[in-house]
Each structure stands twice: as structure tokens, then as C-alpha cells.
Design a protein around this nucleic acid. Structure first.
Length: 541
DNA sequence: TATTAGTCAATATA
DNA sequence: TATATTGACTAATA
């Protein structure tokens, strides 16, 4: 079997990259304003304007005559859908120049990356990039094979891509039409979703709604628009939260019987701007049992851990004592760094966990050690230095491998019959592949086997890859929804109002922001955010 | 047999 | 360098 084709790529930032940046900036700005403590980093000056951007699929950009070159486009043109030529943009930017005290030119990130060549369609030009994109997109049409278009190499690490596709010779009809399309913007726009719908309709045998173009020359250039939103409103400083319970250091006796359900939690101490070091267990009043020092004596199905709070606490401890995730992951829970990161950011509620409870139980036991022990089991001292003899055996259960952990011997390798096995390289979806899959997922989270097969053929992917994509997307979409629900619940249904500014709440904020990004990627976003443009429209009605 | 849950680990990103 | 993301593997489950 051959390895999967190299990912195709485009010049310029990836969509995800830009989205991530936007949300992170927005989050950063919100936190900065909200904290009032100066502890959080203020957004960089040149990034301020970015905080006010968001996407809006409903707004299109119509070019004006002064649009002459792709040099004039923002570097993230392909990711956004409106250019500075827009009146909306002008009024908006002027407003924010006043607010931020920054000049427009310095605020935009158009020049953050090297500018692209002006001279026609060079191999590194922005227009070529767009055309390549369209060529790939065009391959949705029934006569083309998407897979054949993927001949470029991506460098996601740098956010830039090196194009290796060929440019049509000047004077050829393809070349001319490409120029016309790039500069003309004279066709109706078509969004990814429309393309996906069209594709799905086609796949389902309904041609009536499909938008298929006979040739590459007929493919319209998508209009990229951009929604501009004001920064999220910042509310009053957080109310002072009183610690309701006195902190007790509880030592065994261990319970002599097993409670039906013991609610074990970790405790916040807002007045102390963080967590109290003393472990606390809150015992369900109905059960009337003594608290326990660890969860050793309680079976998983007899206890209940507030996983979200536990994870916030763990994250806080790791930061506070500069404990690397990889160290904690391996020594305490016996999992990989990436798994820990994911668990901390997206903890599933205890009652929705199946075999994963044991991992949280280990975290819980660690967090309930006293401070010295917490560090010593990691082989660290209070200064973040390594010490030689970790005391783990007597304090915690040794981390056990995950039951479904992959072993090196079992790892599927990509190799021929003879010689040492070579690990199958990890597939990185091309931008087009990813966007297409996302768009289709937005339409249908559970495409039929046949549809997956067709999608795979169109995108030049293995059917199992397509299947994996949808399974992962469904799962991660569900997890995101769980996080959003818990966040909304804890906020009285107002997801925009920032919560009290505590370390734990900061984590919540971060996750929420991250979730917005996930929503964006997965296409499961909630209600649209009202923009300045929307407000202007409403006011004029 | 297909799907889900838990996870790894390569890779991207901060 | 540390953390976040994500395609794919494995075992459990429907």
C-alpha cells in the first residue's frame, strides 16, 4: 500500500490559524480588560484591531475599480470575506482607531508576512493561491478528480505553504480566464456549505439543486466576506465570593463501610486568589459518612468527582509549581501529555465517563495529597527542582497503562514485506480537504457509508480516513457541546458575561473561547453575534 | 459489524 | 520548550 499523498497546500495562512488567532486575541483582550489586576498580558498593540473581527457568511464583498492587485488584499484574504475597501470596514476602522489610539495601517496584520509578488501569476503569488484553491474546489464537479490536484506540500508549522503546482502558460485560455476570474468577481459567490450541499445532493442522486460547473473556467470566485464585531462587552468586576466552608485537614479513619455515593470535590478559595493548598472533600450530606483522604477505598461507581473543578484545580497546581504536563501525565496518571492536555481542557462529566474514570481518580488522589507530597511524587521540590527519590509508591497507586493503550509492537506500520517497519506518517489534511469535510459535517454529521466512499474518492482520501474524520468530529463536537452546556449553566444562561476573574474562571474563559473556535471549525456555532453592521441595519429600519 | 470512548503520539502552535 | 490539536488505533459496547 502506498502512503497517503502529501497534503496539498496553499500560500498564506491557513483558515484555522487565523481563526485561532482571532479568538485568542479576543479572549486575551477580554481577560485583560476584565482582570483589572494587570496580571494578564495586554494584547499587543498591533493586534488590537483584530479583536474586533469575526466572520460573517452573510456579508459579501463587491470589488471596486481600485482593486487592482492581490497585493492590496489582507494577508488573510482567503480566510475572510471583506476587504478594506468596504464602507463598513472604513467606518468601523475609524471608530476603532479612535478607541484604540492606533493608526489603521499599524494595526492591520496585512504586513505581518512577506508581501506577495505583483507581477502576474507567479508561483508564489496570492492569486495563484486563490486559483489553486478554486481549482481544487472545482474538483467537486462530477468530471474532475480532486485527488489529482493535491500536489503541494504544506508547512503548517510556519503557517505558510510552499506551492509546487504548475502555472498555466501565459496566453492560454486557462490563464486568461484565471486572470478574469480573479479580477472580475463577476460571478455569484458560492460558499463551502453550498458546495457541500451541492456535493451531497449529487451524492444522493438529486441533481436538481447541485451547482456543478462544466469547467474550471466556469467556476465563480468565492467572495470572501468578513464580519466585524465590537469587542465583547465587559461587565462589572467580579463580586467578592465568600468562602463558605472552613477548610479542614482531614485524616483517615477510612470509612468502615462504603457509601452509596460520595461526592468528592476540590475546593476553591476565591479570597486567596487561587486554590487553597489544603485538600478538601465534600461529603454528600445524605450519605453521612466520613470523608476519606483518598479515593482508594471507594469504588468508581460509588463516588462522584466534579471533573471540571478537579481539572481546573490540577491546571492551577501545574502552573503554580511549574509542573510540566508531560511529567504529571506520565508519573501520576500514566497517560501521554496530549491526553492530559485534552482531559484538562475538556473534562467529561463524571457520570458520562466509562472506563475513563480511573484517570480522573488518579488526579483526584494526587490533588488530595499535601503540598510536599504532591511535589515529591513528581520528583520535585518546592522550587520546581528535581529531586532524586520520588516517593510515589507509598502515596499513590502506580500509574497503570491505559487498557487500550497502543503498544509499539502493535502500532500499524507502513512498510513492505521485508526490512524494518516504517511508521506510517500521520496524515495532515490539505486545506481543501479539511474545509470540505468540515462543510459536509456541518450539513450531515453522519453521512452514509456510500456517501463517505464518494467523499473519499472526491477528496483522494482513504474511506477509513473519512470515517475516522466523522467519528472524531462527532465526538469532539459532543464534547464541545458538553463544555458549552456546563459553561452556560454556570453562567445563568448568559455565555457572554465574563465570569469572576479567578484562576479557575480564567480557565473556563479560555475553554469557552477555545470552544468557540471549535464551533467555528465544526460549524456548530451558536446564535450569531450581532455586528456593528447589523446594528446599523436595524437602526435604519 | 458499526460506533463509541479512551487514548497515543505526531505535529502544530504559543 | 511547553501546550494544544488531531488522525488513527484499540477495546468496549450497541
Amino acid at each position: 500500500m502506498e502512503p497517503p499523498a502529501e497534503s496539498s497546500a496553499r500560500i498564506g495562512r491557513t483558515h484555522g490559524n487565523t481563526t485561532q488567532q482571532r479568538y485568542d486575541l479576543q479572549n486575551s483582550q477580554m481577560l485583560s480588560k476584565n482582570s483589572g489586576s494587570g496580571r494578564l498580558k495586554k494584547p499587543k498593540e498591533e493586534e488590537d484591531l483584530s479583536n474586533y473581527f469575526d466572520l460573517n457568511d452573510s456579508i459579501s464583498y463587491s470589488p471596486t475599480d481600485d482593486f487592482n492587485s492581490f497585493d492590496d488584499l489582507p494577508e488573510n484574504f482567503l480566510d475572510t470575506e471583506e476587504t478594506p475597501q468596504s464602507n463598513h470596514f472604513k467606518s468601523f476602522s475609524a471608530d476603532n482607531i479612535r478607541r484604540n489610539g492606533n493608526s489603521f495601517n499599524n494595526n492591520t496584520n496585512y504586513d505581518k508576512e512577506p508581501r506577495y509578488h505583483r507581477s502576474g501569476l507567479t508561483s508564489s503569488s496570492k492569486s495563484s493561491d486563490l486559483l489553486t484553491d478554486l481549482r481544487h474546489t472545482d474538483s467537486f464537479s462530477q468530471d474532475n478528480d480532486l485527488g489529482t490536484g493535491f500536489d503541494t506540500v504544506s508547512d503548517r508549522r510556519n503557517g505558510l505553504h510552499q506551492a509546487t503546482y504548475e502555472i498555466p502558460p501565459q496566453g492560454s485560455s486557462t490563464y486568461v480566464s484565471e486572470i478574469n476570474q480573479v479580477r472580475g468577481f463577476d460571478k455569484e459567490p458560492i460558499s463551502n456549505v453550498e458546495l457541500a450541499s451541492s456535493m451531497i445532493s449529487t451524492l444522493e442522486g438529486d441533481d436538481s439543486t447541485s451547482t456543478i460547473y462544466d469547467s474550471y473556467d466556469d467556476m465563480p470566485v468565492p467572495r470572501h466576506t468578513q464580519r466585524i464585531i465590537p469587542s465583547r462587552s465587559i461587565v462589572a468586576p467580579p463580586p467578592k465570593i465568600e468562602t463558605s466552608e472552613k477548610v479542614h485537614e482531614i485524616r483517615p479513619p477510612r470509612p468502615t463501610y462504603r457509601p452509596l455515593k460520595t461526592v468528592v470535590t476540590v475546593k476553591r478559595d476565591y479570597n486567596n486568589s487561587g486554590y487553597d493548598d489544603t485538600p478538601i472533600r465534600h461529603v454528600n450530606e445524605e450519605v453521612k459518612t466520613e470523608a476519606v483522604q483518598s479515593s482508594y477505598d471507594i469504588e468508581e461507581d460509588e463516588m462522584m468527582i466534579d471533573t471540571a473543578e478537579l481539572c481546573r484545580r490540577i491546571a492551577f497546581e501545574l502552573k503554580k509549581y511549574k509542573i510540566p504536563q508531560v511529567l504529571f501525565a506520565e508519573k501520576i496518571i500514566g497517560r501521554s501529555q496530549g491526553t492530559l492536555s485534552d482531559l484538562l481542557r475538556n473534562p467529561k462529566p463524571w457520570d458520562q465517563l466509562k472506563t475513563g474514570k480511573s484517570t480522573f481518580k488518579k488526579m483526584f488522589d494526587w490533588v488530595n495529597l499535601n503540598q510536599d507530597d504532591r511535589l515529591s511524587v513528581l520528583g520535585m521540590d518546592g522550587n520546581g527542582n528535581k529531586v532524586s527519590t520520588p516517593r510515589s509508591e507509598s502515596l499513590l497507586d502506580p500509574p497503570s497503562p491505559a487498557p487500550n493503550a497502543r503498544h509499539s509492537g502493535k502500532t500499524k506500520k507502513y512498510s513492505g514485506e521485508e526490512g524494518p517497519a516504517i511508521k506510517k506518517p500521520r496524515l495532515i489534511f490539505s486545506d481543501v480537504q479539511k474545509r470540505t469535510l468540515q462543510a459536509i459535517f456541518k450539513e450531515t454529521e453522519r453521512p452514509s457509508k456510500e456517501m463517505q466512499q464518494t467523499i473519499a474518492e472526491h477528496l483522494g482520501l482513504d474511506p477509513s480516513t473519512v470515517s475516522n474524520y466523522f467519528m472524531n468530529a462527532r465526538r469532539r463536537s459532543r464534547n464541545t457541546q458538553i463544555q458549552l452546556d456546563s459553561y452556560t449553566d454556570s453562567n445563568d444562561g448568559n455565555p457572554i458575561t465574563p465570569p469572576p476573574e479567578t484562576p479557575s474562571r480564567r480557565n473556563s474563559n479560555k475553554r469557552s473561547t477555545s470552544n468557540r473556535k471549535k464551533e467555528d471549525e465544526l460549524g456548530i456555532g451558536d446564535t450569531p453575534i450581532k455586528t456593528e453592521i447589523d446594528e446599523i441595519s436595524e437602526a435604519s429600519m
